[in-house]
Each structure stands twice: as structure tokens, then as C-alpha cells.
Design a protein around this nucleic acid. Structure first.
Lengths: 244, 244
DNA sequence: AAGTGGTCTAGACCACGTT
DNA sequence: ACGTGGTCTAGACCACTTT
């Protein structure tokens, strides 16, 4: 029920070292800020040359899992909010970065034992303790997102102590969960009466709908659905062949 | 007016070699299938050790720019349709991969000199020759996407010879343009009468709207807007920390 | 001043795929 | 059998940052 870390034993030394370190980070055993062993320590631990561990650590840094500093060593990075490109972003940070004022309200908060719908949405067993939240985000006073979220309390029990009346759950989770996998679905639909009321738009207006599920080491952490008025939010992504 | 390839001279040998090779690929000078020099040739060319060019080529392979085979050498890869994760995919390939039948119609095709709206959408100078297209995609006979596309004929003059009556422009372009950068915007809006008619849905229904602009070496290639019925198409993306 | 990572070298042996 | 890339080593020198 804890962190499931079954990394395939690797064919090459490089992979073995890399997946062992990656495992420690993704599972949460090495939280953000944790000081990863120095290269010379890894050389001893794996009985290999420095080039090999250096390549592992350089690649992990390029992938954004660790940050390296001369003399100070390497530490586990905290997950970038701009996870690659299509992360459902930290709405709070996003709004404030663009210079607008950010507003947040908690509309609903309840601890429940998962029944069928929650269990399926979150991908957990029935009766798993779950925290259900609904909140609203504003930009310059105007509602621009309704967030419906389930948090798996079996994996993130600390969430129960948080009341989320001031801090958006995503902002809090980003600081708590060291690293995750995520899956997104994006669709469009017409606002029903409830959503229209909450967003201050006409019923039937087009809304952009984002669903994200998040795992840590194979275990479901949270499932969230965010509904934006279609005309006031644009997802954005950019590609280039290399990240150099 | 041709391929603008101004790569900054690099601080390290690795970067210098990598950006020189990357340049050749992205600019199109080395098209898909082109045989990249062998490692020992690059060693001579750059007067360095094999480890250094090997790291460059390995990383380019990991990034998907080249494919490597022992004995045969390395060749420039053809752009993967599943560009990273949120590419507007090749709709034809996507539909057929899911086992459905695919249908395509060209609704409109005209060569024009870019005026204000086209120039802005495509990011080119006014009067640039442009090919404007509108087409419709069907899944199992049912319309599921309307595509509005501009192609910069100054960069892709071959497009003028293509009539696109049978082959979707994206499918053709993927085979023509060796490598690109792209930028996406995703939004939702209510179908106007024209779109509703083309998609066979009610006016006012929510639609998912994807806009993509594509460059090659800094030059605009194509701009496309794809409109899907909101309920029949879902973008999908999945993340994991490493691609090993 | 000392210790870390950043980069590079000149070898080596092996696995694989073409011939 | 041969030539390619895949991987690894044991060193080296340098740049940066903290002490």
C-alpha cells in the first residue's frame, strides 16, 4: 500500500544506476531538497568509473529531476510547475505571473469513503478514504475556473490536516508530492446551469475541460477536473527538437 | 529567404558538434533518411575523441532526431507523428490506428497573396504567396474535424503542385518537412452555423479548437486550426519523468 | 584553499548486423 | 569476417562556489 518501487534490473550499468536513483526520487524516499550522494560516493557504491555516474547525474539534471551545483553537490529538484509543457498549471502562479490579481474560494470539502464514482475517477478501491474538494479560481475578480478534485488520503494522509480554505490544493500538492506521472484529457462541452452560475457565464457557453490524474510510483494520488470558460483560457504548448 | 541557420557558436565542444548536426537536420539540408557521417568521420572532422561525438549522437538519437544502427551507421529520422505528446496528430493515422474508417474531403483550395489576416495568422510578410485550404475529416463516415490551413509557399513551394484532393495536407507535410518547431493553442468555443453545418452538429454546441503554427529553422511553414465537436474528440497526453 | 561538478581524452572490449 | 555503434574505464584539467 506504500510506494510500489519495482524497477526492472537494468541491462547496463548506466541504466541500473539511473533507475535506482530515479526510483528514490519518484517514490518520495528522496524528497525535494534531498542531497543526492556525491559522484565520488556513487562511484564507490556502484564500483564504477566517475564518467558513468556523471552521465547519469547529468542526464537526470537535463530531465529536471535533480539540480546540480559545484561544490554544493546535487539535490532533488522540486517538480517544475511547467511540467514539460501541458501540465495543468498552478493556476495561482500562472495568474500572478501574468500580473493579474488572483482569487480563490473553497466551495466544498468533505472526507468520504470512495464509492463507485469516486473509486473509478481516482482509480482506487472502493472504500478508500478520499478527500473531495470543489473550488473556484478568479482572475482580476472574474471567475475563470472551477476545480473538482479528489485526493487519495491513503497516499497523502497529510491532506486531511489541510483545510484548503486559503491555499489551492494544487499549490499545496506541488510542494508535498516530490514527483509524479500524470495523464491528461482535454475536451470541450457546454456549460450546464450549475457551472454557468459558478463561472458567471450563460448556460450553454462552450467550456474547456481538463481532467488530470496523477500517480506517484504507480499509486493514484489525485484526480482533478478543471472547467474554464472557453473564451478566457487557452492552453499553450511549444516544442523544439532539443532542449539545449 | 531560405533556411536561416545561425547557430550560436558553442561554449563546449559537445555543444558545438551537437548544434552543427542539429542545424543540418532542422534546416532540411540533411533530409530524413540522410546518412549522417560515421562517428570516426566526425572524430576526424572535429578533431576530438570518439566519446564526445558518441555522446552527441546518442543524445540526438534519444531526442528522436536520428536513428542509429550498428554497422549501418546513423540516419536522420523522419519526424515522429506523435511529436512528444501533444502534437496535433496526423488525423488519418490516428483514426486508422484505432480501427475506424477514415474519410477526407477537400472543401476549399486557393493560392493567394497574403493579406493582413493571413499574414498575421501565419507570421509572414504581406503579399507572401500562401496556399489556403479547408478540409473535413470523417471517422466512420461521421464528420469529426474541420481543418483550416495556410501553407507558406515561399518555404514549401512544392505544396502548390499538390492538389490535396485525396491526401490530407498534414499527412503530406509530415513526409515533406524534415523537422519543425511548433506552437499550440487550445480553446473551446460554440459552433457557429457554418461549422455546425460542416460537422453535422447543432449550432452552439461546444467545440474543441486547436491552433498550431509550425516553423523550420525560424521560418514559418504552416498554420492550422482544427475544430472538433467537443464530445467526440479528446486530446490526450501522458507524462513520466524519464523516457528510458 | 578545498571540494564539487563540467568536460574531454585515448584507449578498451563487446554486441550486433551486414557482408 | 568486418565495421559499426554501445558501453565503460582511469585518468586529466578546468571552472565554479563555498569555506
Amino acid at each position: 500500500m506504500m510506494s510500489g518501487s519495482r524497477t526492472a534490473q537494468a541491462s547496463t550499468l548506466y541504466r541500473r544506476i539511473r533507475s535506482e536513483i530515479e526510483d528514490n526520487i519518484i517514490s518520495g524516499r528522496w524528497p525535494p531538497g534531498y542531497r543526492v550522494p556525491f559522484e565520488h560516493e556513487l562511484v564507490q557504491q556502484f564500483s564504477c568509473s566517475r564518467m558513468t555516474v556523471n552521465r547519469v547525474m547529468s542526464d537526470l539534471a537535463a530531465a529536471g529531476l535533480v539540480e546540480r551545483k559545484r561544490k554544493a553537490g546535487s539535490v532533488v529538484a522540486r517538480p517544475r510547475v511547467q511540467q514539460a509543457l501541458l501540465d495543468v498549471p498552478d493556476l495561482k502562479a500562472e495568474v500572478e505571473n501574468s500580473g493579474d490579481s488572483y482569487g480563490y474560494e473553497l466551495l466544498f470539502r468533505q472526507r468520504v469513503a470512495a464509492r463507485r464514482p469516486e473509486a473509478e475517477r481516482l482509480g482506487v478501491a472502493i472504500k478508500t478514504p478520499v478527500l473531495a474538494l470543489r473550488c473556484r479560481h478568479r482572475r482580476d475578480g472574474r471567475p475563470f475556473a472551477v476545480e473538482d478534485r479528489l485526493i487519495n488520503l491513503a497516499e497523502v494522509p497529510e491532506a486531511e490536516q489541510q483545510d484548503f480554505s486559503l491555499l489551492p490544493p494544487n499549490t499545496w500538492l506541488v510542494g508535498q508530492i516530490p514527483w509524479t506521472e500524470a495523464e491528461h484529457r482535454i475536451s470541450a462541452n457546454n456549460a450546464d446551469r450549475e457551472i454557468a452560475l459558478l463561472l458567471g457565464i450563460d448556460a450553454g457557453s462552450a467550456c474547456l475541460n481538463l481532467s488530470r490524474r496523477t500517480w506517484r510510483g504507480g499509486n493514484s494520488i489525485t484526480a482533478v477536473t478543471i472547467t474554464h470558460p472557453g473564451d478566457c483560457y487557452q492552453l499553450f504548448a511549444r516544442f523544439a527538437p532539443s532542449k539545449l
